[in-house]
Design a protein around this nucleic acid. Structure first.
Lengths: 219, 219
DNA sequence: TGCAATTTTGCATCTATTGCAATTCTGCAC
DNA sequence: GTGCAGAATTGCAATAGATGCAAAATTGCA
């Protein structure tokens, strides 16, 4: 990192060096091996040693790629969430904030339940079962909340702090609701859309817009 | 503790046997010792062995009272949340659901940040720092969400599933927001009230009720 | 080719967590 | 009062995740 004669072709794709490339490959190898083993034998039945062996690295190396066994489950998801966050940061500056929020929620949800990853079903299954993984997932949720909040504050410089936090919290709450709903009723894209739309409607119009919630129950 | 001629006055409070009583004392001893040590030396600096010693039980016994070291931090909070859940279940049946939701959020928040417990400040501090504990806290949050959802469905038998989940998710989102806000701006009861009210207003009226969020930012 | 930075690895260690079986305690019936 | 059945406590051993450290292997580049 000394001579920048011709230097890195600072083009759009960050263009990593060969070294970074290899690290990336190793990372994928570890994550891939882990997911495969989790799918085959189960989560707690798979040890770090197993994963390391399958990925052809030493057990110690595992921890220089992932801080914990739990985090490896989120390798892909985290990548996708990072992309989403990035994409959100470059949204048309003249878009109404409400619209941006809607986009955010949709994008994040898609990132989480997307069919892309070879093991997404496995991941979702694992996460939903193990309490420890659920907790990790919730952490991602709060990260998301913070991302959305920052986005909002950038879009509306004058926005009160409490309004910003509340809005992002509520949006994420709606998102969480959709996840819970899908967890129960399955993941058919069609019904997911419907649920998502309904949740977002309530997010935007408030609980007060739900007729049944206003009325006193007639015993 | 011999003469119980007239036996257990099967009064309102469940009146536990002597055995249960002792267990309860031990539980408190462990939790108390743990919190004290956490406050003194820090969380990771305190081992299960330390806690057990301070509570005068064997390390092995610790785990027959708490499933994990993390859970002991929530001993008090869990008790209070249980009370709240109980109280909520016995709400006037003719109360408008929206009102019930408002009550729920307020009650849960009070349970969490109440001044009651001798160590509540310590707990909150710990929870906010350690990621692992944050995760546990979030789990409590989803438990709360479920409690609220069940409450809602009981109050509004006809309520759509998605509406119920969304409403509870959004309510909890607002709650979470208040917590985040307080975490930043301190816990003065006054400003907390204000923030809470504002958040609840947005929960009830929707993000659309926040003027700044509707307008396209003027560059 | 050889150096310097970066990675990988092996090893020791700590600690949480769990299963199991022995031991002690407690409430209660006789 | 005495003894028993069930419950709680304990000790012991083993597993596995996580971390620090320093030696060894790799890699990019001059």
């Amino acid at each position: 990192m000394s001579d920048m004669h011709h230097a890195e072709p600072a083009s759009a794709p960050p263009e990593q060096g060969l070294r970074e490339r290899k690290k990336e490959r190793t990372r994928r190898a570890i994550a891939g091996a882990a997911l495969r083993l989790f799918a085959e034998r189960g989560y707690e039945e798979t040890t770090i040693a197993d994963i390391a062996a399958a990925a052809e690295v030493s057990p110690r190396t595992f921890f220089s790629y992932f801080p914990s066994k739990e985090d490896v489950v989120f390798a892909e998801i985290d990548d996708r969430l990072a992309e989403v966050a990035d994409r959100l940061a470059h949204r048309p500056a003249d878009e109404p904030p409400l619209e941006t929020i809607r986009h955010s929620v949709v994008a994040v949800l898609e990132a989480i339940v997307s069919e892309h990853g070879a093991y997404s079903a496995v991941q979702v299954g694992l996460i939903l079962e193990r309490p420890g993984l659920q907790a990790r997932a919730l952490q991602r949720m709060t990260d998301t909340q913070q991302t959305i909040e920052e986005l909002l504050r950038e879009l509306c410089p004058g926005l009160d702090e409490i309004d910003a936090v509340a809005a992002s919290g509520i949006a994420v709450g709606g998102m969480q609701a959709v996840i819970v709903h899908c967890r129960r009723n399955g993941y058919e894209p069609r019904s997911m859309r419907v649920a998502l739309d309904r949740a977002l409607t309530i997010v935007e119009n408030g609980l007060g817009s739900v007729e049944a919630l206003r009325r006193t129950p007639d015993a």
